[in-house]
Amino acid sequence: MPGSMTLPDHIHSPETPRETVLSGRALVKDYGNAPALRGVSVELGRGEILAVTGPSGSGKSTLLLCMAGVLRPDAGEVHFQGRRIDTDSETDRSLLRRDSFGVLFQFGQLITEMTAAENVALPLLLSGARRRPAMMTARDWLRRFGVEALADQLPTQMSGGQSQRVAVARALVTEPAVLFADEPTAALDTVAGEQVMTELTRVARETGTAVLLVTHDARVAAYGDREIVVRDGLCSS
């Protein structure tokens, strides 16, 4: 019988315990016709990449939106760095999105009338940075993702994979504590999707950003350190 296979030690993920940076407890969300979340609890450690999988319609996207403060859960609590955030005002939660959270969707988050560099500089400009330093930082980040040649192009002039990499750059430009990615590669082909995921995980590990990754594709989930499965609004495993 064939024997076992050993990979070098540094390929295995480190088992060191991490402090929790974001946690959701007993989250419930109902859209009226069917409950999307029926009591899900999640803990995300610092710098950890957590994959949330499950069949479509199981509530994983709703979970991500509640944890990111975009939606208010009907019941349950969300804590970030020890502080409860689901009861914050809309203004406070948008400040969180500006400085501490990055969000990445399947599509439609770049502003189509602004160039790639301006899009990446957006969170910095919103915080009050001056235009020139913000644009320079933006270009650095585009370089980090290998798309600096697209800095002055509009999103409509790029391929899907390229615009997603710009979107990842924008999500990580403030070096947030948590990056929320909802099916980031679902609209891309395999190669483009792998490029995005490789870049995303590489830079996220460099900046120490934790990632909450929602996906239905096991190959994308394999980029995570850990996986939880959401089925019918409940968490299994």
Binding site: S94, R97, V103, Q109, T112, P123, L126
Partner: peptide
């Protein structure tokens, strides 16, 4: 839609 994207990127309602 553009302003909503701005909001998702972190702009406050006042912004």
């Amino acid at each position: 839609r553009r302003l909503a994207s701005l909001r998702m990127a972190g702009a406050s309602p006042g912004d």
